[in-house]
Simulated scan of single mutants.
Amino acid sequence: MDETVIGMHEAKSTLSQLVQRAAAGETILIGPHGRAQAKLVPVDVAPARKRIGVARGKFKVPDNIDEHNEEVANLFLVSNR
């Protein structure tokens, strides 16, 4: 791996190209006076996982779950003065 540190001015001037290099898998070190202060790396893109239904089968929903909906909604409407 090339440990060359890109200077700040060069990094600002060539940001688009540096991002393309990073996207291709290269790690880019950036900092003043040859001292790395930042690292530009490719984003790890993980496939989105389907989350709906992750607890399916783990809980039993009672048949009367909606029985107190109106009462609970009214609790939010009542002033606490």
Rank of each mutant, 00 (worst) to 15 (best):
A73R: 15
H9Y: 11
E10C: 06
D66I: 04
M1Y: 12
R21Q: 07
L77G: 12
E71A: 14
V72A: 05
D66F: 14
R81F: 13
V61S: 07
H33T: 06
T14S: 13
K12C: 04
A24P: 02
G31R: 05
S79F: 12
N69I: 08
A38M: 13
F76D: 08
K58G: 04
Q20I: 09
P32K: 15
A73C: 01
P32R: 15
I30F: 01
H9G: 09
P62S: 03
P47M: 05
E70K: 10
E67P: 04
V72D: 03
P47G: 15
V5T: 10
Q17D: 15
G57V: 07
A36P: 02
G57Q: 10
G57C: 02
A22F: 03
D63K: 14
N69L: 13
Q17G: 07
I30N: 05
I52H: 10
G34N: 06
A48W: 06
N64H: 08
G31P: 00
I52N: 04
R21A: 14
K50Q: 14
M1N: 06
D2H: 11
G53W: 06
H68E: 09
T27C: 08
R21G: 03
A38N: 10
G34Q: 06
V41F: 06
A23K: 12
P42L: 05
I65W: 10
A24C: 04
L15N: 06
E26Q: 11
L77P: 08
G34K: 01
Q17M: 14
N64M: 00
L40S: 08
G7W: 04
G34V: 07
L18R: 03
N74E: 13
M8T: 05
A24W: 10
R56E: 06
A24D: 08
T27N: 12
L18F: 01
K60E: 13
I52E: 00
E26I: 00
S13P: 09
V19Q: 08
A11F: 01
E70V: 01
P42N: 07
M8A: 01
G34R: 03
P42H: 14
K39Y: 10
V45C: 11
L40Q: 03
A46R: 10
M8G: 01
K60Y: 12
A24T: 07
A73F: 13
I28V: 15
F76T: 00
A11P: 08
V54C: 08
N74V: 06
R81D: 10
M1L: 13
P42E: 12
G31E: 00
Q37N: 07
L40W: 00
D63S: 10
A55D: 03
L15P: 01
K39S: 09
A55S: 08
H33I: 01
F59T: 05
N80S: 14
N64L: 02
K60N: 13
H33Q: 15
G25H: 02
D63Y: 06
H68R: 14
A38Q: 05
E67M: 06
A22C: 00
P62W: 03
H68Y: 10
T14L: 08
V54G: 04
P32M: 04
R35C: 03
D66G: 15
H9P: 02
L29P: 00
L77I: 12
T4E: 12
V78E: 15
F59N: 07
T27E: 14
L15R: 09
D44V: 14
A46V: 14
I52W: 11
T4C: 04
V54K: 10
D2F: 01
S13F: 04
L15E: 07
A11Y: 01
E10P: 05
G7F: 00
